[in-house]
């Protein structure tokens, strides 16, 4: 069960992700993105990729992280099944992605996500844990 929900946005798709720690927040966000794109149960962990992302601050880093993940899919045809965050600082993040190259015979693509927008993007700590918001252009 991935801990996220979709909030209404007239033309696009807003997603809110919840987690107990910042590392988990990033890991959950990556799964939320790929859960929207495909049926994750059909994706296997056959390949490993390293990811390093920078940003001007936590919100910017979060958007850049998702931009890189989205490029892994729509630029390189790689579907992510699991994401392990190795290091996360306010301006830098490293992670290991596990997944497999897209195979039309095995994977169903549910929707097109064109881009990760900066509109209302935020990462914040609440009493209940970490919450991140982002709007995808679909």
């Amino acid at each position: 069960m991935i801990n996220y929900h979709i909030f209404d946005h007239t033309a696009d798709l807003g997603v809110e992700v919840f987690a107990a720690t910042l590392r988990e927040l990033y890991a959950e966000a990556s799964l939320a993105l790929f859960d929207l794109l495909t049926d994750l149960s059909a994706v296997r962990e056959t390949e490993e990729r390293a990811l390093a992302v920078g940003g001007e601050g936590p919100d910017d880093l979060f958007v850049n992280f998702l931009r890189e993940l989205l490029y892994a899919w729509n630029g390189e045809g790689f579907l992510v099944k699991r994401c392990t965050i190795r290091e996360v600082a306010p301006r830098r993040l490293t992670a290991i992605l596990l997944g497999e190259p897209y195979d039309p015979a095995c994977h169903r693509i549910k929707m097109e996500i064109k881009a990760v927008t900066y509109h209302q993007a935020s990462v914040r700590r609440t009493e209940a844990g970490w919450v991140a918001r982002v709007v995808f252009d679909v």
Binding site: E56, D59, D60, N64, R67, Y71, N74, G75, K114, A115, V116, T117, Y118, H119, Q120, A121, D137
Partner: peptide, 26 residues
């Protein structure tokens, strides 16, 4: 999509240098 995405990211990164006050980073 890629042209827009990358141009926007560059401009967000350098937003502070333009002296333009933005009500929304987008």
């Amino acid at each position: 999509f890629q042209v827009c995405d990358e141009s926007l990211a560059r401009m967000v990164k350098h937003a502070g240098e333009t002296g333009i006050d933005l009500p929304d980073r987008q």
